[in-house]
Simulated scan of single mutants.
Amino acid sequence: MTSLHDFKATAIDGQETDLASYDGTVVLVVNTASKCGLTPQFQGLQELYDQYGDRGFTILGFPCDQFAHQEPGTEEEIAEFCQRNYGVSFPMFAKIDVNGKDAHPLYQWLKKEQGGLIGGAIKWNFTKFLVGRDGAVLERYAPTTEPAKLADDIEKALA
C-alpha cells in the first residue's frame, strides 16, 4: 500500500525532503497561492499549526500556479510573503502542479485516494487533505473550508 511516507518533495529552500520523515505525524497537505481570495487562510493554517504542532501535527504547504496564475512568484518570494504576512512557520515546498500530466506524484496519489466533487481534479487553491499518522488519507476538504473547521478531525486523528 502506498502512503504519504512513500513520497519525496523539494522544500521551498531547494532541499529534497523524504516525506517518510513525517511517519507518526498527522499531516495536513494544502496547495497554496499568495494572490488568491483564499490566501488569508494562511492565518488559520498557522493557527492550527501553533495549536497542534507540539502534539504530532504538521502542515505541508505546496504552492501552485495552476489556478488563474495566482502564485506567480519564485520560491524565495513565496517564502518571504508567507512569513512576512502570515508568520508561516510550517513546512513549505517548491511550487508544483497538482493537476494534469505534470502533477506531482504526491498529488496524483492524494487525488486517487480522495476523489472530491469533480472527480480526481483539484478544484482550486487551498484544497486540503488530512493524513493520519500511518500516512493514509483520512479526509479531503474543499478550498473554501476554513482551517478552524478542521479542528475536530485533527483532534480525532491525534487521539
Rank of each mutant, 00 (worst) to 15 (best):
M1R: 15
M1A: 09
M1I: 10
T2R: 14
S3A: 09
H5Y: 01
D6K: 14
T10C: 06
T10P: 14
I12Q: 03
I12S: 00
D13S: 10
G14T: 12
E16A: 14
D18L: 12
L19A: 12
A20H: 14
A20G: 11
S21P: 11
S21N: 15
Y22F: 15
Y22W: 14
D23G: 14
G24D: 09
G24Y: 01
T25A: 08
T25E: 12
T25Y: 05
V26P: 03
V27C: 15
L28E: 05
L28R: 08
V29N: 10
V29F: 04
V30N: 09
V30E: 09
T32P: 11
T32H: 08
A33L: 00
S34F: 04
S34H: 01
C36T: 01
C36V: 01
C36Q: 04
T39C: 04
T39H: 06
Q41L: 08
Q41A: 07
G44T: 12
G44P: 04
L45V: 11
E47R: 13
L48K: 14
D50R: 13
Q51A: 15
Y52G: 08
Y52R: 10
G53I: 02
G53E: 07
R55C: 04
G56W: 05
G56C: 08
F57K: 10
T58A: 14
I59R: 11
I59M: 05
G61H: 00
D65L: 05
D65H: 06
Q66M: 07
Q66E: 00
Q66R: 06
F67D: 10
Q70G: 09
E71C: 05
T74P: 06
E75W: 03
E76W: 08
E77A: 11
C82V: 05
Q83P: 02
N85D: 10
V88H: 01
S89Q: 04
F90C: 06
F90K: 09
F90I: 13
F90R: 07
P91R: 11
M92D: 00
M92L: 13
F93W: 07
A94M: 03
A94C: 10
K95A: 04
I96V: 15
D97Q: 05
N99C: 07
K101C: 00
D102V: 03
A103I: 03
H104I: 09
L106Y: 02
L106P: 08
Y107K: 01
Y107H: 03
Y107L: 02
K111P: 14
K112E: 10
E113M: 12
Q114C: 12
G115D: 10
I118H: 15
G120W: 00
G120C: 00
I122T: 07
W124N: 09
F126T: 09
F126K: 11
T127A: 07
K128F: 13
K128R: 08
L130N: 14
L130S: 14
V131W: 10
G132E: 07
G132S: 13
G132A: 15
G135M: 05
V137T: 11
V137C: 11
R140Q: 12
R140K: 13
R140C: 15
R140N: 15
A142R: 15
T144W: 03
E146L: 07
E146P: 12
P147I: 00
P147C: 04
K149H: 09
L150Y: 06
L150A: 08
D152P: 13
D153E: 10
A157L: 12
